[in-house]
Computed example of a mutant assay.
Amino acid sequence: MSRSPWYFIPTLYFVSGLPYVIINTVSPILYKKLAVDNLQITFWTSLLYLPWVIKMFWSPIVDIYSTKRQWILTTNLLLFCAFIGTAFSLRLPNFFAISLILLILSAFISATYDIANDGFYLLTLNPEQQAFFVGIRSLFYRLATIFASGFLVFFAGYLEKYIADNSLIWMIVLISSSLIMAGVFLWHLLILPKAPIDKPNENQTQNNNFIEIITLYFRQERIWAILAFILLYRLGEAMLVKIASLFLLDKSSVGGLGLSTSPIVDRAAAKGDRVANEIMNQAVDYLVTASSSVVERIFTPGIRLEIVTTGSVWQSQWGMWEKFSQGMTGKYDFVGVILPRNEPAFGAALLARNTYQSS
Rank of each mutant, 00 (worst) to 15 (best):
Thr67Ile: 03
Gly17Tyr: 10
Leu122Met: 13
Ser16Lys: 09
Leu248Trp: 02
Gln326Glu: 14
Pro127Val: 05
Pro301Val: 03
Thr25Gly: 09
Phe140Ala: 02
Lys271Gln: 13
Ala182Lys: 02
Leu186Tyr: 14
Ala238Ser: 07
Leu77Met: 09
Ser2Arg: 14
Arg297Ala: 15
Trp6Thr: 12
Ser149Cys: 01
Ser59Lys: 00
Phe133Ala: 04
Gly255Glu: 09
Ile104Val: 13
Trp52Glu: 01
Ala283Phe: 07
Ile61Val: 08
Ser176Phe: 10
Ala349Asn: 06
Trp170Lys: 09
Phe247Asp: 02
Leu246Glu: 01
Arg69Ile: 07
Phe346Pro: 00
Phe132Cys: 04
Lys271Val: 04
Ile109Asp: 07
Ala244Tyr: 03
Gln326Ser: 13
Gly256Ile: 02
Trp71Val: 06
Met171Leu: 14
Pro127Leu: 05
Ser253Cys: 03
Leu174Arg: 03
Gln70Met: 05
Leu159Ser: 06
Thr289Gln: 14
Ala270Leu: 12
Val308Ala: 13
Phe154Lys: 07
Ile29Ala: 11
Arg222Trp: 14
Gln317Pro: 03
Asn203Leu: 08
Tyr286Ile: 14
Asp165Pro: 11
Leu100Ala: 13
Phe218Ala: 03
Leu152Val: 02
Gln40Lys: 12
Ala148Tyr: 04
Asp250Leu: 01
Leu12Asn: 09
Pro193Lys: 06
Asn208Thr: 12
Ile72Asn: 04
Ser252Leu: 01
Ser312Leu: 10
Lys251Thr: 06
Thr205His: 14
Gly119Asn: 09
Ile338Pro: 06
Pro60Asp: 04
Asp114His: 07
Glu322Cys: 14
Asn117Lys: 08
Pro19Tyr: 02
Leu186Thr: 14
Pro5Asp: 08
Lys251Ile: 01
Val308Tyr: 12
Ala290Met: 11
Leu50Ser: 08
Ile9Phe: 13
Ala131Pro: 06
Thr67Tyr: 00
Thr310Trp: 10
Ile230Val: 13
Trp71Gln: 07
Arg142Gly: 01
Ser27Tyr: 12
Leu102Trp: 09
Pro127Thr: 01
Phe96Gln: 13
Phe247Trp: 06
Leu152Lys: 12
Thr215Ser: 15
Ile61Asn: 03
Val337Thr: 11
Phe324Cys: 15
Phe334Pro: 07
Glu212Asn: 14
Met239Pro: 00
Tyr20Ile: 02
Val36Ser: 06
Ile146Thr: 12
Trp170Ala: 11
Gln204Asp: 04
Gly255Asp: 06
Val335Pro: 04
Leu77Cys: 04
Leu190Gln: 12
Leu48Phe: 08
His188Lys: 06
Thr300Trp: 08
Ala131Ser: 11
Ala131Gly: 00
Arg267Pro: 00
Leu305Tyr: 09
Asn76His: 10
Phe147Pro: 08
Leu47Cys: 08
Val62Ile: 09
Leu12Ala: 10
Thr45Tyr: 00
Pro51Thr: 14
Asp273Thr: 14
Val26Pro: 05
Leu152Tyr: 04
Tyr162Ala: 15
Gly336Val: 05
Glu128Met: 11
Val184Glu: 00
Phe247His: 03
Asp250Met: 03
Thr261Val: 09
Glu343Gly: 05
Pro93Thr: 13
Ser262Leu: 01
